[in-house]
Design a protein around this nucleic acid. Structure first.
Lengths: 141, 141
DNA sequence: AGCATCTGCTTAGTAGTACTAATCAAATCG
DNA sequence: CGATTTGATTAGTACTACTAAGCAGATGCT
């Protein structure tokens, strides 16, 4: 049904803009931004990544991620060091504080979202779980 | 299953950030931003809205929408006039150019998204259609 | 009528994200 | 050993969002 495709697209765009803005606004004083948190999570899952690695993971340019990373370093949430193999590269690692900040932020944001998700029916949650990877696939295609 | 709730939340956050950034990057030179486009669409559906109306529709503050609207006015995509009943209010209307810009932008962005959606199965599209309003509900709750 | 208050909007300042382009330094290729 | 490529940084631009300060019109109270 070709008519529905347009429909889905418009709804999806609107939903993405709203959700993004909503997620941002859930951030409280002292917490890192959504994008920065994703960097922390990435480093948590796999340490020792270079700037290029982080840029690729976040799908942004080197310049953009460089800014984000600079802020995180100033907060002492991550450390930067030169790669011993290739000294052009910098490799990043999560600090103890970064680890804690990441966990705390994640928990806080999840609390809010979980409350919302809890209001849904089990079927709706199941739909969401199924759809989320689909959305990522669309975004990354 | 409480475990899945956390899962859904994390996926959803990541998907929202990515999708938003993807939508933004689809914008080409000369097109208005995602947020501005939503304003144009809002005015297209219902003209003569005040700044407060637009702020409420977009769920942002007056200051934020004021900026967006100022840019649109500079582009001559919308016109601003004083409400005759209450002269504190300003009411906005889409211009011919705004109408065209809106349609063109919408079509261009939809083309990209439709191509993505076309790659999905009918069942997945159906899921998306069902889920989109749910996402909006979450964002606006 | 006249002052106080409320309401609608604007503007300035801050912060954060993203992009491109210019630049620098290390590695690598010929 | 120069030329080129690659990794990263920085500067400049554009947008979005927020808060706070301030202005102007409307309304209410005495």
């Amino acid at each position: 049904m070709p008519e529905n495709i347009d429909e889905v697209g418009a709804e999806l765009r609107r939903a993405a803009v709203r959700l993004y803005s909503r997620f941002r606004s859930e951030r409280v004083e002292g917490e890192v931004s959504e994008e920065a948190l994703l960097v922390l999570i990435t480093l948590d899952k796999q340490g020792g990544m270079s700037l290029s690695d982080l840029a690729a993971a976040a799908k942004v340019t080197l310049g953009s991620i460089s800014q984000t990373v600079r802020r995180l370093e100033q907060l002492a949430y991550i450390t930067k060091s030169r790669d011993t193999e290739d000294r052009r590269k910098v490799v990043f690692a999560l600090t103890e504080q970064g680890q804690q900040a990441s966990t705390a932020s994640r928990r806080h944001r999840q609390d809010w979202l979980n409350a919302r998700l809890g209001e849904l029916t089990a079927a709706e949650r199941a739909d969401l779980l199924r759809i989320a990877p689909l959305l990522l696939r669309i975004a990354d295609s």
